[in-house]
Structures are given as structure tokens and as C-alpha cells.
Design a protein around this nucleic acid. Structure first.
Length: 956
RNA sequence: GCGGGAGUUGCCAAGCCUGGUCAAAGGCGCAGGGCUUAGGACCCUGUCUUUUAGGAGUUCGUGGGUUCAAAUCCCACCUCCCGCACCA
């Protein structure tokens, strides 16, 4: 079946009725937003999840009577698009092929892609078209991009506010950096998409005469165990003036230091071999050690000089051992044999010289052995978490290594005997431009000061107050607030808004997207041409958002009529705060937390966001979606093959909020079939006058009320999978039972009832599968639109508990009959059912009351029953009590309560209903007797085993 | 390391918050039947073990505990997944 025409038809209707356009009115409002997309590719099914969740939320609230605003914008800010444009300019075939085959971009469009904005514009339209096709109930009059001039004014205003409050600060920060592009690099900017991560090393300055021989280490605390330095004799070292000292370092190191803002002047060279045998002074220790040769030392790593701690560093131990073996080759080092490892860390499970232990364990015999890496890793982590410094480490003695490391580092740094070096972890990382990346210390970088303690405190307290779904995310937010530090908020390249006070910087993408929800409430006026963005500046936003300033003045300043200005302000005040912000899980540690922080900083409390709803990601056939796996399905392709509603349901039904949703073809097919069946059914049940209600009709209506109640609660908690489960599946099994009952009775008058039932269901399905719901709604013969119908309200009064109990009794008895037939394998000829005697019913009611009251002691129950003349007959059958108590205990609280409320049900009457079912299913007649009926047919003496809700059965 | 999540019957996956309706939804697979020229689709029945009367037994990562009652609550352990930044 082709959904396209159906989707088109209803989309047109919604559009004609301007259903999703929201303007302030007298109703209560509900403002729901989703993070706007970054348009550097078409959206795929994974992107659809958050939007679909938000759309269901919006549609549900709309049907519940709220004036719902659900807007959408496009986030052009950022650098990846710049990178893409550059690759197009360079004729990167990999990317261009992806555009052609994967994204199906027309050839002539790709040609324009050398201009970044064209890429954004193209995918912007592509994504928007997909959103419309998916049926998202968005008010498109409020659309914008983050490079629109009016938006730029808005962001400038935001940053000035933050700066006024002292939340924007300047500082120095290390970043991964491309020397050619003169720009920080992120994962998107590198060849092979490697995240350029780096580690901070402590550089310890050893003195060689007037020179400094610096060594880079991760373990400054081991300075107490240094026995020598290592240089590579084959390396030609540089002598360079570094700031005011003369350092001997590898040339690679000199380059690195240059990016770390050191002033480097080369003054000469010295070979490693020349240094061998010389002595250096160890800082903080009144001691001198030799410089020795080692081949494992690489000039590209650290400073090219290594401090040797043989007791705790396997490389050092092995190199020293190797050297001693050929001591004769080094006559200029007289006392090589005297160099002994100095043990300074005590760790459980290791002896005096831990490095020796590890080396022997792994069978390492020389310094070229690659297993040395493994040895180093093992020992480092064991000593770091479990080791303590020994007596010979002065005031650090007995401290655990993890703590001592930081203290020793600070101590040496404070004494001017150390420095800091950053080193890329992955070795060589190449920028997309081909240049090798480095770590650069950026000066005068602008930061948002998320480490500000008052700001943090405010964020914590609001996080604890606001609604967060699912609840477990609340902790995560609090944790993020704790570890969040200053965050760079400006870059030197990329699309976006310039920093208002320093136009060399562009405000970074995660910082210009934190309060834009407010912008939705006013951008409508700019899009309609009622406000000209050109000369807008701060006093405008102050007036609208903060109610600061004078109406008269602002009006004349911007040449906006006073009434217009007032209605802009009123619109903001009507819609704000955001009632629900939907987002993927990945945005918790960044965007969503910033969103909270910034709202708290800029707006008064009444405008702080009310609720955040976080969802997991989408898997494709159980696997993560990725370009390299080739399992990315563009959303619009999927809509064409499966239909929008099937996709919406498949995404929603496969997982609850936080779980990853698995999108698989089979599930979609199943859903599609279900929807098609629903449409077929819809035409069968037109509105009709109902006959007087039979038992099963009352039951069906009761179940409907219960389902409405359950589904509504589930949606309110955003447990959409659960809600769909009720609306789609539980509902179905109820209808099936109903049809079975009605058909067994050969009824022909149930269409009117089913029409009502199905219409209610279709209305409830409408937020989830809007197109199918509209189509089914009209096929059922209903007027208007399903999406405009009010959300069904459960009416307690329509629940007939007796009919619910009776039908349950029928189902249970039918199950028992089936069971008996299965076990005995007999072909039934005749069936007889016996209901329990009156005294048993009384006893049952009493037991029920007692058990509900918490008394499950069989002895006391029996006593009290015997004491009562109505139930004294229990003496004859004491086993009855035990069985009944078990019956009751194995029931749910709900069912017990309802039995309590209903009192005794006339089982004989109820079970007579079974006759038609038995006849149609087994083709035999059913007789129902009371246990006490003297004229009953009971050849096998079964009747006496009857219990309330558990009639005796005889099958012959 | 810090923080978060998960482990359920052949597979996927609900149930856990709020203990009892749980041998545990639904889907897939498998078996039998129906429909069909055939295939597909669709419909019915079955699918832990055992049982010729609706019963019993053993299961929800492992080991304890609480309770009349535990997949569900508590404690410990094992295993797996995700995030840890200047990037959308």
C-alpha cells in the first residue's frame, strides 16, 4: 500500500486549517522545543527520534486543550561545514561521491558547495522537507537560521549580558591546533577523524653546568628515584635559548615549545654522544648523576631527554641492564656497575624493585622489546592507585602515589625547577589540510566561566527543582555541573556571530544556542516584515525579554509602533518559559547543561525552563549507525518506502525514553501491516444506534475507560512505548475477545459500539501516527480532524466492575477447559459446569476481607469462619480455606480491590454466557448448575470441588 | 579513575519505579493446521520440564538477605555498553 497520497492529503488539510500556527490567546500555553539541527547532511532515521517524541508531546498537549507552540530553527554556526566546503574546493572525491550517492545531491548543487553557506542552505531545505513529510506539527512561521542578522543581534545581546555579569572571562588554554590553518582542530577536522587529545607532562629541569637538560615525565614523584638521564647518542640535540635559560633539547621539542608560547632562539648544537658520561645536577636533590646512552629514547617524544628511574620504570631498568652488559664499550663512565636502582614506592604484590619483577614476569630481555610498553602500563597503574612513597622521599613519605604526584609536581614547579609540556596522545595527527597538528597554548581565549561557584550553585538548585525525564538523568546533570570548568566560547573561524567587543572572534556553536528558544517567540514579527532587523540592538531585547527601558523611547528608537512592541513583548511573556525541552542523550553533558546555566544567568526565575526530556539513540538492526558501516538510511528515503507513520511508531515502540531504540525492517513491516489492517477495519464500523447493552458490550466499554486512563498516564510521563502498547496491542486483544464473544452469539448489532470504541482509539493514536489516524477517523465516518478532536477522558462511571469480573471469570474458565482438554486429550462430547454453593461465596467474601486486611493466617481465618453460622459448613472442607487464600494471594491488588467493591457476582448467570463460546469453539452444549442444585447432572461427583471464581468442570 | 546504563525463557525484547494478575507481554524463529495454482502475505494452534482433569517442578547474570510472597526491594560480586570536553 502506498501511503504517499494519504500523507499528502492530510498534510494539505492541516496546512489549510493552519493547525500548527500558534499565537497567544486565552488558553493555557505549552511551549515544546527540540535542539535545532546542524545542516551538514540530510537527516537519517536516528535524527527522527527526538523530533518525533517532541511532536507526539506537542500533539498530545494540543488535543488536551493547550495552545501549543512547537517551532524549529537551523543551526548554521560551526566549522564542519567550512571543512566540507574546503574539501569540495579541493575536489575531494570521497566527499563528492558521498554527496552524489549517499545524499543524492544533484550535480549542479554540488558545484555550489565550495561556498559553505550553500551547503547549509541545501541541507536546511532537505531537512525541513523531511520534517514536513514526517508530519511534525511545527509552526514554520518562526523558522530562522543562526546567521540571520536579527539572530546575530540577539546573540550579541546575550553575550553582552553575560559579560556584564562577569561570566565571560579571558585566559590561556591548550588546544589541538593546525599550524597551517591557524585554527583549533577537532575530530571533524582531522584525517581519519581522530580526536586530537593530549596529555600534560611535567618537565623537570636538570642542570648541566649553565645549561638545562629538561626531561618530560608523567610521574614527577619519581624524581626521588632518578639514577641517571638517558639521551639517544645518535640524535643531534639543539642548544636553544628558551625564555631566559639555555636548554638542550631535540629539535622536535623546540618546535613544540614554540607553540606553547615559549621564546625559542637556537644557539647551537650538541650530539647525544657528546653528552654521554657527563654529569647533571638533580633539582631538589643535592646529588649528581650521569648522562647515559639509550636507544629507546626518541627525539620526537617529550624533550628527547629522559630521566631514568630504573626501580619503577621498566624501560629504564632494561636500558640500564643492557648498558651494564656492555660496560667495556663505555670507558668514560667509570662506575657503571655502581648505579643501582633506587626504590621509592612500595606496592603490594611487588618486591623491592617492581620494574625488575614485571620485566621478569613478561620475559623481557632487551630495551627493543615491544612488551616494555605493556610492562610500563601495568606497573604505572598498580603503583598509581595502590602504591605508597617510601621513607626516602622526605616530606612525601607514606603518601599514596595518586596524591603525592600532584603535590610533588606543584613543589617542583613552585621552585622554578619544572615546566609544563603538552604532547598529542596519538602521535602524528594530520589536519584535513594535510598539515601535522600540534598542541598550542592559546592566549586571550574567551571563556564562559562555568566554574563560577555561585553560578554552579544556582544551576544545582534549579536542576533539583525542575522536571527531568527520565529521573536518573538528574544525577548526571548534577555531576556535569560539578566538573564543568571554563569553556572556550569563541573561535577564529566558522559561521556565526562575531564577539561584540572583539570582532576577531566568532561565538562558538555551543554558546550561541543556549537561549534561542526565547527568540522563537519574537522572530515571527521579523519574518512577517513587521520588524526590520537592521538597526535592532540591545535596548530592544532588554525591553522585550527583561522589561527594562521605556516603551516610548524604544518605540521611537527602532521606529516600531508601540502596540506592535507591546504585542511582541506579550508574546514572549505568554510563551516563556519553555515547558519541555526534548533532546538526545548526547547533549546532556554540554548543550542541555549550558541551556540551564544560561537561562539562569540571563532571565528571571519565572522564565527558567520547566522540564527537560532526554532520549537515547537509534540503532539500525541492532547496530550503531555509521557512515563506514553504510547502514545510514536517510529519513526521506525511509518515508517513501515505509510511510511516515510506520517510522514514527517503529522508533517510538522499540524502546522507552533512555534506551537505545532499534530500528529494524521487520518491526517496521509488522507495524505497517497493523496500520493497514486498522484502516481496513475502519470502514466496517460506521456510527449506528446501539442496541441495549449486553454483558460483553458493558465489558468493552469498561475496558476502553481503563485503557484511556492507562494510556493517558503513560503519555504524561512520556512513556510513549508503554502508551502505544496499550493503544495498539492491549486494545487489540480486548477487541478480539469482544469479537469472539459477539460472533459466538451471532450478533449483528455491534457496529455502533465498535465505531465508538475504534474512534476513541484512533483519536488516541493520532499524536503517534497522525496520518493514519486522520484517514481512519474519516473512514469511520467522523467529522473534522482526529488531531483536532479532544483527547479522550476516562470516565470512572462507565466502568462496570461486575462485567469486568464476569468476563475475567469466563476467560479463566475457558482457559481451564482448554487445559483439561490438552492434558486429557479427550474429544469433548458434553460439558458441565458447577458454581460454588452459597456458603462458599459468603466464606470467600470473608476471606477476601481478611486477606485484604493483611491477615493470611489460615488457622485464625478458619476459626472465625466456624464461629459464624452462615459459614460454619467450612468444617466439612477445611482445605477450601487454604486454596481460597492462595487464589486471592495470587491476584493483583487491583483485582482484589475490585472484587471487594463488587461483592459476590452471580456466577451461574455469568457462566451461562459461556454456552455460545463453547458451542462455536467445540461444537458441544454446555450446562451450568449450582453445586447445591438437587436436580443437577453430576455423574462424577465433581460439583463439590467448586469454589468462587473457580467453578468445577466436567468434560465428557 | 569519575559518572551513567544494562545482564530475562532459542533470538530480539517487555516486566523492575509501585513485590502477589509471572512460566513471565509482543515480535522473530520453529512445529502443526487453514487459505493460495505456487511463493509471499494473512489467519488459527503450539513452543521450560512433567502431567490422561484444570496440577506439580525448575527458571529471570552469581551469591546472600528482607518478606506469608522476589524477575521486581536491600547488600556483595562478576560481565558488558556509553560519556569524560572546547566538538556538532
Amino acid at each position: 500500500m502506498d501511503w504517499t497520497p494519504i500523507e499528502k492529503k492530510w498534510r494539505q488539510r492541516w496546512d489549510d486549517e493552519k493547525q500548527f500556527q500558534s499565537d497567544p490567546d486565552e488558553r493555557k500555553k505549552f511551549f515544546v522545543t527540540v535542539a535545532y539541527p546542524y545542516p551538514n547532511s540530510p537527516q537519517h532515521i536516528g535524527h527522527g527520534r527526538t523530533y518525533t517524541l517532541a511532536d507526539v508531546h506537542a500533539r498530545f498537549m494540543r488535543m488536551s486543550g493547550y495552545n501549543v507552540l512547537f517551532p524549529m530553527g537551523f543551526h548554521y554556526t560551526g566549522t564542519p561545514i567550512l571543512g566540507m566546503a574546503r574539501r569540495v574546493q579541493e575536489n575531494d572525491t570521497g566527499l563528492i561521491d558521498a554527496f552524489k550517492t549517499l545524499y543524492k545531491v544533484p550535480e549542479e548543487k554540488i558545484k555550489e558547495f565550495s561556498e559553505p553557506v550553500k551547503i547549509a542552505d541545501y541541507f536546511h531545505q532537505e531537512i525541513k522537507a523531511g520534517m514536513i513529510e514526517m508530519g511534525y506539527s511545527i509552526d514554520w512561521r518562526r523558522e530562522f537560521t543562526t546567521i540571520d542578522p536579527f539572530y546575530n543581534r540577539f546573540i550579541e545581546w546575550q553575550f553582552k549580558k553575560l559579560k556584564e555579569k562577569g561570566l565571560v572571562i579571558q585566559g590561556t588554554h591548550p588546544v589541538g591546533w593546525c599550524p597551517k590553518d591557524q585554527n583549533p582542530v577537532s575530530q571533524h577536522d582531522t584525517l581519519g577523524d581522530i580526536e586530537p587529545s593530549f596529555t600534560e607532562y611535567t618537565v623537570i629541569k636538570f642542570k648541566y653546568g649553565s645549561y638545562v637538560l629538561p626531561t618530560a615525565t608523567l610521574r614527577p614523584e619519581t624524581i626521588f628515584g632518578v639514577t641517571n638521564l638517558w639521551v639517544n647518542p645518535n640524535v643531534n640535540y639543539e642548544i636553544a635559548k628558551v625564555d631566559n635559560e639555555e636548554w638542550i633539547i631535540s629539535s622536535e621539542c623546540a618546535t613544540k615549545l614554540g607553540f606553547l608560547n615559549k621564546k625559542i632562539t637556537k644557539t647551537g648544537n650538541i650530539s647525544g654522544a657528546e653528552l654521554v658520561g657527563k654529569k647533571v645536577k638533580i633539582p631538589e636533590r643535592d646529588d649528581e648523576v650521569y648522562i647515559l646512552p639509550a636507544t629507546f629514547v626518541e627525539s620526537g617524544s617529550g624533550t628527547g631527554v629522559v630521566m631514568s628511574v630504573p626501580a619503577h620504570a621498566p624501560f629504564d631498568y632494561q636500558a640500564l641492564d643492557d648498558l651494564k652488559k656492555e660496560a667495556s664499550k663505555h670507558p668514560n663512565i667509570p662506575s657503571l656497575a655502581d648505579i643501582k636502582p633506587i626504590s621509592i614506592i612500595e606496592t603490594e604484590g611487588y618486591g623491592e624493585i617492581p620494574a625488575k619483577d614485571v620485566i621478569e614476569k613478561l620475559g623481557i630481555t632487551n630495551q627493543e622489546d615491544p612488551k616494555l610498553e605493556e610492562a610500563t602500563k601495568e606497573l604505572y597503574s598498580k603503583e598509581f592507585y595502590g602504591g605508597r612513597l617510601r621513607q626516602n622521599t622526605g616530606r612525601f613519605a607514606h603518601k599514596v602515589v595518586a596524591d603525592a604526584k600532584e603535590e610533588v609536581k606543584k613543589w617542583i614547579l613552585d621552585n622554578g625547577n619544572a615546566d609544563t609540556l603538552y604532547e598529542l596522545n596519538e602521535g602524528v595527527v594530520k589536519c584535513r589540510c594535510g598539515a601535522e597538528c600540534v598542541v598550542k597554548l592559546l592566549d586571550n581565549q574567551w571563556f564562559l566561566d562555568y566554574s563560577n561557584p555561585e553560578w554552579k550553585e544556582k544551576a544545582h538548585s534549579w536542576i533539583n527543582e525542575m522536571k527531568i525525564l527520565p529521573e536518573e538523568i538528574r544525577n548526571e546533570f548534577n555531576h556535569v555541573v560539578d566538573w564543568l570548568k571554563e569553556r572556550a566560547c569563541a573561535r577564529q573561524h566558522g559561521l556565526g556571530t562575531k564577539l561584540p567587543w572583539d570582532k576577531n572572534w566568532i561565538i562558538e556553536s555551543l554558546s550561541d544556542s543556549v537561549i534561542y528558544m526565547a527568540y522563537y517567540t519574537i522572530v515571527k514579527y521579523v519574518n512577517a516584515g513587521e520588524i526590520k532587523p537592521d538597526n535592532i540592538s540591545d535596548s530592544f531585547f532588554d525591553y522585550i525579554f527583561l522589561e527594562k527601558g521605556d516603551l516610548e523611547k524604544v518605540s521611537s528608537e527602532y521606529n516600531i509602533p508601540k502596540e506592535k512592541l507591546e504585542s511582541v513583548k506579550k508574546e514572549f511573556q505568554y510563551y516563556y518559559p519553555v515547558n519541555a525541552r526534548h533532546s538526545g542523550r548526547d547533549l546532556v553533558p554540554n548543550h542541555l547543561t549550558f541551556f540551564i546555566f544560561n537561562h539562569l544567568a540571563i532571565f528571571p526565575k519565572k522564565y527558567w525552563p520547566e522540564e527537560i526530556v532526554v532520549n537515547g539513540s537509534v540503532l539500525m538492526d541492532g547496530k550503531k549507525m555509521s557512515k563506514s558501516m553504510g547502514n545510514i538510511i536517510p529519513l526521506r528515503d525511509a518515508i517513501r518506502t515505509h510511510g511516515a507513520d510506520s517510522i514514527r511508531l517503529a522508533i517510538l515502540i522499540s524502546a522507552e525514553l533512555l534506551q537505545d531504540a532499534d530500528f529494524n525492517q521487520e518491526a517496521v513491516r509488522g507495524i505497517k501491516n497493523k496500520l493497514e489492517n486498522m484502516l481496513d477495519d475502519a470502514v466496517k464500523y460506521k456510527a449506528a444506534n446501539e442496541a441495549s447493552l449486553a454483558q460483553e458490550d458493558r465489558w468493552m466499554y469498561s475496558r476502553l475507560q481503563q485503557l484511556i486512563a492507562k494510556a493517558t498516564v503513560s503519555i504524561q510521563k512520556m512513556r510513549l512505548r508503554e502508551a502505544l502498547h496499550y493503544i495498539l496491542y492491549e486494545f487489540d486483544s480486548d477487541v478480539q475477545w469482544y469479537l469472539k464473544r459477539a460472533e459466538a452469539k451471532n450478533r449483528a448489532d455491534q457496529a455502533g459500539i465498535l465505531h465508538k470504541v475504534f474512534s476513541t482509539r484512533v483519536a488516541m493514536l493520532s499524536p503517534f501516527a497522525p496520518y493514519v489516524a486522520e484517514e481512519a477517523w474519516s473512514r469511520l465516518g467522523n467529522q473534522g480532524l482526529a488531531s483536532k478532536s479532544p483527547w479522550p477522558v476516562s470516565d470512572e462511571a462507565k466502568i462496570d466492575l461486575v462485567s469486568v469480573q464476569s468476563e475475567d471469570l469466563l476467560k479463566a474458565t475457558l482457559d481451564d477447559i482448554k487445559n483439561i482438554i490438552k492434558v486429557t486429550k479427550i474429544t469433548p462430547k458434553k460439558m458441565t459446569i458447577y458454581t460454588a454453593a452459597a456458603w462458599k461465596v459468603k466464606a470467600y467474601q470473608k476471606i477476601l476481607t481478611q486477606v485484604t486486611g493483611g491477615d493470611v493466617n489460615i488457622g485464625t481465618i478458619i476459626k472465625s469462619l466456624i464461629a459464624d453460622s452462615e459459614t460454619a459448613e467450612i468444617k466439612k472442607d477445611p482445605d477450601f480455606v487454604k486454596k481460597t487464600v492462595n487464589d486471592i494471594l495470587s491476584e493483583s491488588q487491583d483485582s482484589r480491590d475490585s472484587k471487594n467493591k463488587v461483592g459476590a457476582v452471580d456466577e451461574t448467570e455469568a457462566l451461562l454466557e459461556l454456552g455460545s463460546l463453547i458451542k462455536s469453539e467445540y461444537g458441544v452444549d454446555l450446562q451450568v448448575f449450582s453445586e447445591t442444585d438437587l436436580a443437577k447432572y453430576d455423574p462424577k461427583n465433581k460439583a463439590r470441588t467448586a469454589r468462587p471464581y473457580k467453578p468445577a468442570i466436567l468434560i465428557e
